[in-house]
Amino acid sequence: MATIYSCKECTTNLNLTTNRIFPPNFYFEAGNKNSLSFSWIDPDKFKFENEDKIRPFFETLNYWGIQRKRTKIMCKNCGKLLGYVYDDGPPLVDTPGQFHFGPSQVIPRNPRFRFRSKALVLTSDS
Rank of each mutant, 00 (worst) to 15 (best):
I54C: 13
L61Y: 08
K47P: 04
P96M: 01
F26T: 07
T3Q: 15
D52S: 10
K8H: 01
V121Q: 14
L92R: 15
L14N: 03
R20V: 04
N110Y: 00
C10N: 07
E59W: 09
P24N: 06
V85G: 01
N32A: 14
M1A: 12
K8Y: 05
P91A: 05
S117R: 07
G65M: 04
Q67A: 11
Q105D: 11
K33P: 00
D87H: 12
R55H: 14
F99W: 07
S117V: 11
F28D: 11
D87P: 07
T11N: 10
A2S: 12
L16D: 04
L61S: 03
E29F: 00
R68C: 14
A119W: 09
P56L: 15
E49P: 00
T60S: 15
K72L: 15
Y27D: 01
F101V: 08
R112Y: 01
E51Y: 08
D87R: 04
P103G: 03
G65D: 08
V121D: 13
S39V: 06
F57E: 06
T12A: 06
I21M: 15
T18K: 02
L122C: 10
I4W: 03
G79H: 07
N62R: 11
N13W: 06
K8N: 12
C78S: 06
K72T: 03
N32Y: 09
S37T: 14
G65E: 09
W40D: 07
P23A: 04
E29N: 12
N77F: 04
P96F: 00
V85K: 10
F26R: 04
L81Q: 07
H100Q: 13
R70E: 09
V93A: 10
F26Y: 15
V85I: 15
R20M: 10
P56W: 12
F22K: 15
P108K: 09
L36K: 13
R68Q: 04
S104W: 07
F57M: 07
P90I: 00
D125H: 02
I4A: 03
F113P: 07
M74N: 04
L92T: 06
S124Q: 14
R114Q: 13
R114V: 06
R116E: 13
G31N: 08
N110Q: 11
K69P: 01
N34Q: 06
K72V: 01
N110V: 05
N77V: 12
A2N: 09
S6L: 12
F113A: 01
P43A: 06
T18L: 02
G97A: 14
V85P: 00
P23K: 15
C10H: 08
I4K: 08
F58Y: 09
R20Y: 12
F101A: 02
N62K: 08
P43L: 04
A30T: 11
C10K: 03
M74A: 05
N62D: 15
L61E: 15
N77M: 01
P91V: 13
R68A: 06
T95K: 03
D42G: 02
S39L: 05
Y5D: 03
D44S: 13
K76Y: 01
N50G: 09
P108G: 11
Q98N: 04
A30H: 10
P23R: 09
Y86K: 12
I21Q: 13
W40M: 09
